[in-house]
Design a protein around this nucleic acid. Structure first.
Length: 631
RNA sequence: UGGUUUAUAGUUCAAUGGAUCAGAACACUUCACUACGAAUGAAGAGAUACAAGUUCGAAUCUUGUUAAACCAACCA
């Protein structure tokens, strides 16, 4: 049991002994003692002073006395300041902890109420390669799965591939028109980049075709469109004439732009292709399969490089039909309803939301339709207790609606739906936009990071005896480590800013700093392995030794918290703290390890070092970051 | 116009309603390799958007103001 829980139990007992009262476990708060006070852990008394009808100072003194008396092997002393009871834990406790754990290699936490958790992440479109935003998603998802597994749960990683829709048709159409039968092999390009290239070509052509139309409309000429469009344009141009603020004008112009884009011949062609796809046109389907195949080859290479994996991959082309059936079932239950144009809706206004469309008038599905079907399918497949979705925060509303609809239908799994919402990665100039070519490509950034790792490694010249293969592996480990750590060290809920002008740091609060600390410890352990026989008689710790062991003991609590809060950044923060505290001790001439003042001290510090290395390696592995033996 | 979210050193990030000093990292100014690995350590300077309120106590909770992002699509 970790020390915080032990202290809480002891406090409950002491309250019972002294006051003959019960205080709820939830009312007990145990924190680390602030460095400016004496002690290791602090019991906050304010929450139950009223119940015990004494001043905080009196309560603290009585409880402290009782705890020290009852558990002398655990506490040597205490002090009370205002409403805080600071407890000093014995060195014997920490030494005992160290001896029992320093050889440990697995840190998995047993879980009495293990849950079956389906965790969906990555979920790319198949019309363009992965970018930095996807990487945040993938690292976050993979890490969360790892953390939840570490906390004793049964985790199934899944992926939904958005493999159909107008965006795919755009790439297909551009390829058909412009490629002359080129393939990724013949162009010497990675498959996903190859397909993405044609997506860009399509967008360029679209832009060129749309511009004259947009200019014409803004000039006031709205002739030559069908009735519905004409009416829409009349409204927009009228509004534009009236709008005085720049912002408002821009917004209206955006709407006009969208209409202009839709009126282009090339867009019409893309839509026709989508209809042909839905109708099962042989030629279109063949092309679709071929191009998606290229994309999957590219994705697999990237997944393989970063260590992403999935127990099951779902494809939207297969889930959108079950989604429709799912909606029909809801219609029969009377939860959904039809409007006169035959479209299907659900009314969420009683819950403070809007009416939501579920099927178009022509019977085709919309975005949420397939998500409803997929939720059911995943439940049929895995009978989950919790179904987590790693999806950006722009879809908070969508996910709220999804969960609510499932709850309205009385689905047993509805409450287990959890949106692991994360903030978008932005550039200093704002959001990344693929249409404007301001995306940071995933493969490029990984290559860059490996390059920086290479340059730095060669400059330092510490691994000159490595083979070429070992070197390549090391550059990957360090470069990817820096990138993963950079993206995971921030609270997932918050948006983060990435500046491509400044390469990611290798110093300070970074992956390589922690990897370095690990390698440094390993180089000592290669020379001398700690011998527990020699440290049996140790009874006291010096301040920095003690501080480090106290920190290492917290690993379980941190891991549990990270799982509970769905927040890997807690692990990153913790691993950094451990490395920092170790380095501070290591650099201090009072704490020499291999050249310690005597054999006992030497082996004691080696034990601490070994536990440090194991905790670092384990924590980093929860983030998907490898730690090298040498670097 | 409504809903959600965010605002902390020059920059990027921390801080279950808790302490007398809001922590780090980068950048900046110094110092330390004839020291177990300097991808390091040590020292210095620097911040809670604004205004009220709630209470023993507020960066944190409430309200308002200002600014930004997202959502509110028969796009996915």
């Amino acid at each position: 049991m970790n020390i915080v829980d032990q202290i809480k139990e002891h406090a409950q007992l002491a309250i019972k002994n002294v006051f003959e009262q019960e205080v709820g476990y939830d009312l007990l708060t145990v924190n680390l003692t602030k460095p400016e006070f004496e002690g290791d852990y602090t019991l906050v008394l304010f929450s139950f002073v009223k119940q015990l009808r004494k001043s905080p100072e009196q309560i603290g003194a009585l409880l402290g006395e009782n705890m020290v008396q009852q558990f002398p092997e655990m506490y040597t002393g205490f002090n009370v300041i205002k409403g805080f009871l600071n407890l000093v834990v014995t060195d014997a406790y920490w030494i005992n902890y160290l001896q029992n754990n320093y050889t440990k290699s697995t840190f998995t936490i047993p879980q009495a109420k293990a849950k079956k958790i389906v965790l969906e992440y990555a979920s790319p479109n198949t019309n363009k390669p992965l970018h930095l935003g996807h990487l945040r998603n993938i690292f976050l998802g993979w890490s969360m799965a790892q953390i939840l597994h570490h906390c004793g749960h049964d985790v199934v990683k899944t992926c939904i591939v958005n493999d159909r829709g107008i965006h795919i048709c755009k790439s297909m159409l551009a390829w058909k028109k412009l490629a002359n039968g080129a393939t990724p092999q013949s162009s010497n390009m990675k498959g996903d980049h190859f397909v993405g290239h044609y997506y860009v070509l399509f967008e360029n052509e679209l832009k060129a075709q749309a511009q004259p139309i947009i200019d014409k409309i803004i000039a006031g000429d709205i002739s030559g469109f069908n009735d519905a469009t004409t009416t829409q344009l009349e409204k927009l141009t009228a509004a534009l004439a009236k709008a005085t603020e720049q912002e408002k004008q821009d917004k209206i112009k955006d709407d006009i732009k969208e209409i202009g884009r839709n009126q282009t011949p090339i867009m019409q062609e893309a839509r026709e292709m989508l209809q042909q796809w839905e109708a099962g046109n042989e030629e279109v389907l063949t092309l679709w399969k071929k191009m998606n195949g290229w994309v999957y080859e590219g994705f697999d290479a990237t997944y393989n490089r970063i260590g992403a994996d999935f127990a099951k991959t779902y494809y939207e082309s297969e889930t959108y039909l079950p989604g429709k059936k799912f909606v029909e079932a809801g219609l029969e239950q009377g939860i959904f309803y039809k409007k006169e144009d035959n479209s299907t809706w659900v009314d969420l206004t009683p819950d403070g939301l809007d009416e939501k469309l579920l099927l178009r008038g022509n019977g085709t599905s919309v975005y949420i339709t397939q998500d409803l079907g997929l939720a059911q399918e995943k439940y049929d497949d895995f009978k989950y207790d919790e179904s987590s979705y790693v999806i950006a925060d722009e879809q908070n509303y969508h996910m709220k609606v999804l969960k609510l609809i499932l709850q309205k239908l009385g689905k047993p799994y509805a409450d287990g739906i959890f949106h692991l919402s994360y903030g978008m990665v932005e550039l200093p100039t704002g959001r990344m936009k693929s249409r404007e070519g301001t995306v940071v490509d995933a493969d490029d950034i990984m290559d860059e990071m490996a390059q920086v790792a290479k340059a730095k490694t060669e400059e330092l010249g510490k691994v000159k005896d490595f083979s070429q293969a070992e070197l390549e592996e090391l550059y990957e480990t360090i470069g990817l480590g820096a990138l993963k750590f950079f993206l995971l060290r921030v609270d997932p809920k918050k948006k983060m800013i990435f500046n491509p002008e400044e390469s990611i740091e290798f110093q300070g609060f970074t992956g390589p700093f922690i990897q370095y600390t690990h390698a440094r410890i390993k180089s000592m352990l290669r020379e001398v392995y700690p011998n527990a026989e020699l440290t049996k008689e140790v009874t006291a710790l010096q301040p920095k030794e003690r501080a480090l062991v106290v920190l290492l003991e917290q690993y379980d609590v941190i891991a549990l918290q990270a799982g509970l809060e769905h927040n890997p950044s807690l692990i990153a923060l913790y691993a950094f703290e451990v490395a920092k505290v170790f380095n501070s001790m290591y650099a201090d001439s009072e704490y020499k390890i291999l050249k310690a003042e005597n054999e006992i001290k030497k082996h004691l510090r080696l034990q601490i070092s070994q536990l440090t290395a194991s905790v670092i390696a384990n924590a980093m592995q929860l983030l998907g970051v490898k730690v090298p033996e040498r670097m």
